[in-house]
Amino acid sequence: VPLLTGVSAGSMIAAATAAGVAPEPDGMDVVLTAARRTRELSKKSLLPTFDALTPGYSLIDAVEGTFREAIVKSLGGTLPSQSQQQNRDYDYTLESLYDIDPQLFQRRFPMGSLRIGLTDKRALLSTFPPPSPLSSLPTAYRYVDSYRNVEDVVAACMLSSYIPGVTGPLLGDNISDKLLEAFNIGGSEKDEEAGNDAMKRAGRQLREMTRLGLVKDGKTGLPSAQSETETGIERSSQDEEDDSTQYWDGGIADVFPTFDDNTIIVSPISGMYSNPTICPSMQQPNEVENQSLDNSSVSYLLRSYVPSLPATFRHCPKSSLGLNMGNARAVKDMILSSDDEQLYQRFKEGYDDTTRFLNERGLT
């Protein structure tokens, strides 16, 4: 089994792959369930076209439960009962409740085999001027590559996917409650359906993992706590108490995580990469045909108002991203309402592009 690494959505795919979750149907069920929940909640708001960007709505809360369920089941464990899960005080860190064979867990997640990328919020925000999103591997990049139990894996994936105000709460429940009220979603309804506590739970877990040296500096590979001490960064106990969200989405610091030049990058955005890459081809054969059917889409607007968009722009030394209609449509589908058919279409594209990648290299 190759070494796996991932950030954001990619971290969940990498972790699920390591755990042995079958992509179809179990992996897709996680995605489809999260998408259905966002659509249901979105119908109750005044912004019916937005899913992922509905203010105050937390995608990581929508996906955490089904993601944990898929991982635990694939490891032969048992899940907490419905009543336990509905109890807000239920302690998910009670690993013994999952009844997972520790040796099996260690075989699926051996030390160093799965690297989940994170962004250190303090390092990111303390830099002035802020690091350009075009730079790669800025000093804020952190990663985890050893895990004690399923909750370590789930927590790392949740924070690796956490962008404040986009995929998770903005500044805590108070702000998001106000936003939800402003957009006609009752606070109590939000509490019942989403809970909005995945970020806090993951934050507590990562704080403990950091203390144990499981979170490492992206550049040095040293435990991040030790690295901070050596670089003179002081953390007060008050900081640690208040700072439940020290880590944000790993893609902020490093969109395309790599171990080395031989790492195959998987990206749903087409472009040119220095590493071998599985990604959509630069021009989809049916692109022109689809554009005429897609008059209200972002891609149509882009084509209408900026006809001279360059094909690519330099993202970082290891990649140039494609500014084409296919990518515009992909981004639109990811942040706006996506029905099951669209999501399965994305699944099929990933499968087909991988088949093409393997065929071109004689690897099938």
């Binding site: 089994v1 190759p2 070494l3 796996l4 690494t5 991932g6 950030v7 954001s8 959505a9 990619g10 971290s11 969940m12 795919i13 990498a14 699920a16 792959t17 390591a18 042995g20 992509p23 179809e24 992996g27 897709m28 995605v31 999260a34 998408a35 992922a52 995608l59 996917s161 989405d249 790993g250 893609g251 969109v255 395309f256 995580p257 790599t258 031989n262 790492t263 195959i264 990058i265 998987v266 749903p268 590493n275 071998p276 959509p280 992909a330 589908d333 990811m334 942040i335 996506s338 399965y344 994305r346 699944f347 990933g350 499968y351 087909d352 592009d353 991988t354 088949t355 393997l358 099938t364």
Partner: peptide, 30 residues
């Protein structure tokens, strides 16, 4: 086998799931 890095670029990572499915089918992933 080379290492494999799944990028961010979107929370609804169905594309990644499709890639994972194909690699699994061809024995690249366990």
């Amino acid at each position: 086998l080379p290492s494999i890095g799944f990028s961010g670029a979107g929370f609804l990572g169905c594309y990644h799931v499709g890639v994972s499915a194909c690699l699994q089918r061809h024995g690249w992933l366990g």
